[in-house]
């Protein structure tokens, strides 16, 4: 599954953005519904990989953005929580998606390595 490769890339990217002595507590990512990437699989691989990389304290927070689409027929704009192909207003088949391809690292909550409150 390519989620393993994606999580490897994510871990590398997080490590590159940590200053010496810093640890990642919470990592927020945004996954678009059109990417075909499974958040469950990402979580699974993250939990497998974190021990030897970012540490057991690191948590992955995956945000799935609703899909915004404009109907090619009637121009109505709607948000969908799953991939949809029909316009809910006019029923036409043909939606132009305005988002959905994201695979982004949004932010990292970091702490000092010396912080004893973890």
């Amino acid at each position: 599954m390519h989620e393993a490769s994606i999580v490897e890339s994510l871990v590398e990217l997080v490590q590159q953005n940590l200053e010496p002595g810093q640890r990642a507590r919470r990592i927020e990512v945004r996954v678009g519904l059109l990417t075909g990437v499974s958040p469950d699989a990402m979580q699974f691989y993250f939990e497998m990989m974190r021990e030897d990389t970012l540490g057991a304290q690191a948590e992955l927070d995956i945000r799935l953005e609703p899909l915004r689409a404009e109907c090619r027929n009637c121009q109505a704009v709607h948000e969908f929580s799953e991939i949809a192909w029909l316009c809910p207003v006019c029923g036409a088949r043909g939606l132009n998606f305005q988002n959905g391809d994201e695979l982004h690292l949004c932010n990292i909550e970091v702490e000092d390595g010396q912080d004893r409150n973890s």
Binding site: L10, C106, V110, E111
Partner: peptide, 11 residues
């Protein structure tokens, strides 16, 4: 001290 580092980078 915890702080948030905003990145908005493609994974």
């Amino acid at each position: 001290m915890a702080k948030i580092v905003t990145l908005e980078q493609r994974i």
